[in-house]
Lab assay of single mutants.
Amino acid sequence: ENVVSAPMPGKVLRVLVRVGDRVRVGQGLLVLEAMKMENEIPSPRDGVVKRILVKEGEIDDTGQPLIELG
């Protein structure tokens, strides 16, 4: 899985990584606010952040691509 998608609709509060960062499975990639709760979205695998497809403050839909890993 190279693309991390939104598991729920919500607002992107914080992006915790930058392009080029090495990430490990379970590491937080970004924080979504949904139903007044903050949810940290973890990396599904080890890899390198290739692209960040959303910006802080954006509203996303379920299934929307958020981050691409390489």
Score class of each variant (00 low, 15 high):
residue 70 G to Q: 14
residue 42 P to E: 08
residue 3 V to S: 07
residue 65 P to E: 06
residue 11 K to D: 01
residue 55 K to H: 12
residue 33 E to R: 08
residue 8 M to W: 15
residue 40 E to Q: 10
residue 20 G to I: 03
residue 1 E to Y: 13
residue 29 L to K: 00
residue 16 L to T: 02
residue 59 I to R: 08
residue 12 V to S: 00
residue 36 K to M: 14
residue 39 N to Y: 15
residue 40 E to A: 08
residue 51 R to W: 07
residue 70 G to I: 14
residue 15 V to N: 00
residue 42 P to G: 09
residue 65 P to A: 11
residue 55 K to I: 12
residue 41 I to S: 01
residue 49 V to F: 00
residue 43 S to N: 02
residue 42 P to F: 12
residue 10 G to T: 04
residue 26 G to P: 01
residue 25 V to F: 12
residue 7 P to C: 09
residue 59 I to E: 11
residue 33 E to L: 15
residue 46 D to N: 12
residue 20 G to Y: 05
residue 28 G to S: 12
residue 8 M to D: 00
residue 53 L to Q: 02
residue 60 D to H: 15
residue 47 G to Y: 03
residue 26 G to L: 05
residue 37 M to Q: 12
residue 56 E to G: 08
residue 18 R to M: 10
residue 34 A to V: 14
residue 60 D to R: 15
residue 28 G to C: 14
residue 60 D to C: 15
residue 44 P to K: 05
residue 69 L to W: 04
residue 56 E to I: 14
residue 53 L to I: 08
residue 35 M to A: 11
residue 49 V to D: 01
residue 5 S to Q: 11
residue 53 L to G: 01
residue 35 M to H: 13
residue 35 M to F: 14
residue 67 I to K: 03
residue 57 G to A: 05
residue 12 V to H: 00
residue 30 L to T: 00
residue 30 L to R: 00
residue 26 G to D: 03
residue 70 G to L: 13
residue 16 L to D: 00
residue 24 R to T: 12
residue 58 E to R: 10
residue 5 S to G: 09
residue 50 K to V: 14
residue 1 E to P: 13
residue 43 S to R: 02
residue 67 I to L: 10
residue 51 R to G: 06
residue 30 L to D: 00
residue 69 L to R: 01
residue 34 A to S: 13
residue 16 L to Y: 05
residue 44 P to W: 05
residue 70 G to S: 13
residue 15 V to A: 00
residue 31 V to T: 06
residue 41 I to R: 01
residue 54 V to L: 06
residue 64 Q to F: 10
residue 58 E to H: 11
residue 66 L to K: 02
residue 38 E to G: 05
residue 33 E to C: 15
residue 16 L to A: 00
residue 55 K to D: 09
residue 8 M to P: 04
residue 59 I to W: 15
residue 70 G to H: 14
residue 17 V to A: 02
residue 23 V to H: 01
residue 45 R to A: 10
residue 56 E to H: 08
residue 24 R to V: 13
residue 57 G to V: 05
residue 54 V to T: 10
residue 42 P to S: 11
residue 5 S to D: 06
residue 62 T to D: 07
residue 30 L to V: 13
residue 29 L to S: 00
residue 60 D to P: 15
residue 11 K to L: 09
residue 11 K to T: 10
residue 50 K to E: 08
residue 28 G to I: 15
residue 5 S to V: 15
residue 21 D to N: 05
residue 37 M to F: 09
residue 16 L to S: 01
residue 14 R to A: 06
residue 54 V to E: 02
residue 50 K to G: 05
residue 19 V to S: 04
residue 47 G to S: 04
residue 55 K to Y: 13
residue 34 A to Q: 09
residue 31 V to W: 04
residue 22 R to F: 14
residue 70 G to F: 15
residue 59 I to C: 12
residue 19 V to H: 04
residue 62 T to F: 13
residue 29 L to H: 00
residue 62 T to Y: 13
residue 22 R to W: 14
residue 23 V to R: 02
residue 17 V to K: 00
residue 23 V to C: 06
residue 10 G to E: 00
residue 18 R to A: 11
residue 41 I to P: 02
residue 55 K to F: 12
residue 39 N to L: 15
residue 45 R to E: 05
residue 62 T to H: 09
residue 2 N to A: 11
residue 3 V to W: 14
residue 1 E to Q: 13
residue 48 V to I: 13
residue 10 G to M: 06
residue 11 K to G: 02
residue 64 Q to C: 11
residue 17 V to I: 07
residue 22 R to K: 12
residue 26 G to S: 04
residue 47 G to H: 02
residue 5 S to P: 08
residue 3 V to R: 06
residue 16 L to N: 03
residue 53 L to T: 03
residue 18 R to L: 08
residue 49 V to W: 00
residue 61 D to A: 13
residue 42 P to V: 14
residue 54 V to G: 03
residue 19 V to T: 06
residue 66 L to T: 02
residue 20 G to H: 06
residue 29 L to A: 01
residue 62 T to E: 13
residue 64 Q to T: 14
residue 15 V to E: 00
residue 46 D to A: 11
residue 23 V to G: 02
residue 14 R to P: 00
residue 39 N to D: 04
residue 62 T to I: 14
residue 52 I to Q: 01
residue 39 N to P: 02
residue 70 G to N: 11
residue 8 M to Y: 15
residue 58 E to V: 11
residue 2 N to E: 11
residue 42 P to K: 15
residue 31 V to L: 07
residue 32 L to K: 01
residue 24 R to G: 07
residue 22 R to E: 10
residue 43 S to H: 01
residue 34 A to I: 14
residue 43 S to Y: 03
residue 67 I to F: 07
residue 13 L to F: 03
residue 31 V to R: 03
residue 25 V to I: 12
residue 41 I to F: 03
residue 14 R to I: 07
residue 46 D to H: 08
residue 70 G to A: 14
residue 4 V to R: 03
residue 46 D to K: 07
residue 19 V to E: 10
residue 23 V to A: 03
residue 35 M to W: 12
residue 38 E to H: 10
residue 47 G to P: 01
residue 61 D to V: 14
residue 55 K to V: 13
residue 67 I to Y: 02
residue 20 G to S: 04
residue 12 V to N: 00
residue 57 G to S: 05
residue 6 A to T: 06
residue 52 I to E: 01
residue 4 V to D: 02
residue 68 E to N: 04
residue 9 P to T: 10
residue 67 I to Q: 01
residue 37 M to D: 06
residue 31 V to D: 00
residue 55 K to T: 13
residue 39 N to I: 15
residue 9 P to W: 10
residue 35 M to T: 07
residue 11 K to I: 10
residue 2 N to V: 14
residue 13 L to P: 00
residue 29 L to Q: 01
residue 32 L to R: 01
residue 27 Q to N: 03
residue 39 N to R: 14
residue 21 D to K: 03
residue 52 I to L: 06
residue 68 E to C: 11
residue 31 V to I: 13
residue 35 M to K: 11
residue 22 R to L: 12
residue 53 L to P: 01
residue 34 A to K: 05
residue 42 P to H: 10
residue 64 Q to L: 08
residue 41 I to M: 04
residue 45 R to P: 01
residue 41 I to K: 01
residue 28 G to P: 15
residue 1 E to K: 12
residue 28 G to E: 03
residue 8 M to H: 12
residue 2 N to K: 08
residue 63 G to N: 10
residue 57 G to T: 05
residue 63 G to E: 06
residue 12 V to L: 07
residue 39 N to M: 15
residue 31 V to C: 05
residue 21 D to W: 09
residue 47 G to Q: 02
residue 2 N to W: 15
residue 3 V to T: 11
residue 50 K to C: 14
residue 58 E to Y: 13
residue 6 A to L: 07
residue 60 D to M: 15
residue 3 V to G: 05
residue 51 R to Q: 10
residue 13 L to M: 07
residue 66 L to C: 04
